[in-house]
Design a binder for these strands. Structure first.
Lengths: 186, 186
DNA sequence: GTCTATAATCCGATAGAC
DNA sequence: GTCTATCGGATTATAGAC
């Protein structure tokens, strides 16, 4: 029987409404209607509107980190950058509304959940850094240890920028073409 | 005599307040107070709150496009990627509050000014694409023509991601180090 | 051109029934 | 656990004096 999780219904509805109106423009009334529950149920399941979006955005980064880990399993370090890049593009494409939300929020330092989001973001950045380091190491590059988190952030930014440009403005391309454009430069 | 431009006062104040509270969280009362004018003057100089932020964000992209053009003048195509990357980092660092605002807004399609912002963003992306194309062409790479706007968006994203990671979370690095991390991969 | 005062609206959160 | 009804506060925009 279709056992539904009210918390998940609310999270999904929040993403949909925020994609259309932004977080501030997404009212609790709209979220409740989109989720098919009453407004009071939002406050039974979450402490506040902020709590809903904190859960949504942090969940997005955690999901991405898991996808990256999965993509690395059993892949040679030299092939890992393309593998994790592909997994990242697929994850972002799989929930474009959430991806847009994450992109809009990732560098906002004024949110109540800013420090939690920074931790989640950092864990993704560190994964990218490690993948780039390992790839350089197996290529015999002695400067592999010089790869810092900044390089991870740059790789993440390149993927996010290319992915959203692709999905929002230039859908007439294959994912392979997008991957080529991002990685050819690398 | 210090002839001040009220419109510019308002724009600058709007950026400062929005950096602290976000656009929706920035009230017209706060912007007026930060600008040192009355709220009525905001509505004399701009049609609405939206009009203020449209001007601010579009101005940010136009300023960036000009900085890129300036950086290319008299530089060999092979050196242009690093030159424009440096100019981009300097421009974003020169107004970090505005850079954060642009990053938060660039992929939002729900704003009244979305199509104007897309035009301004595209003009930056195309500049990056051209710089990458020319660099590959002078290097004798026959695939230079295959460089698309996606590559420009990726380069832009890499720069923005690295720059904000640097300035917001890892200021203990020189700009040269950041440039190396972004371009080494390229 | 800039100001003060006010209108009209909207939203987050809570209380309490079931 | 979910619902309805409502409160209190904040916000954008306008009107009109100077």
């Amino acid at each position: 029987m279709a056992r539904v999780n009210t918390k998940q219904l609310i999270r999904d509805a929040a993403v949909r409404v925020a994609a259309e109106h932004g977080i501030s423009g997404a009212s609790m009334d709209q979220i409740a209607e989109a989720a098919g529950v009453a407004k009071g149920s939002l406050y039974y399941n979450f402490a506040s509107k902020d709590a809903i979006f904190e859960a949504v955005i942090q969940g997005g980064f955690e999901h991405l980190a898991e996808a990256i880990d999965t993509a690395r399993v059993g892949v040679a370090p030299a092939d890992a950058p393309r593998a994790v890049a592909g997994a990242t593009l697929e994850t972002l494409r799989g929930n474009l509304d959430l991806a847009k939300l994450m992109a809009s929020e990732v560098f906002r330092t004024d949110r109540p959940w800013a420090s939690a989001m920074d931790l989640a973001r950092s864990s993704v950045v560190v994964r990218f850094r490690d993948v780039l380091r390992e790839a350089r190491r197996v290529a015999g590059d002695p400067t592999a240890d010089e790869v810092t988190e900044i390089a991870g952030a740059a790789f993440f930014g390149a993927l996010a920028g290319a992915c959203l440009d692709w999905l929002l403005f230039r859908q007439d391309q294959s994912m392979e073409q997008v991957l080529d454009q991002v990685l050819r430069a690398h």
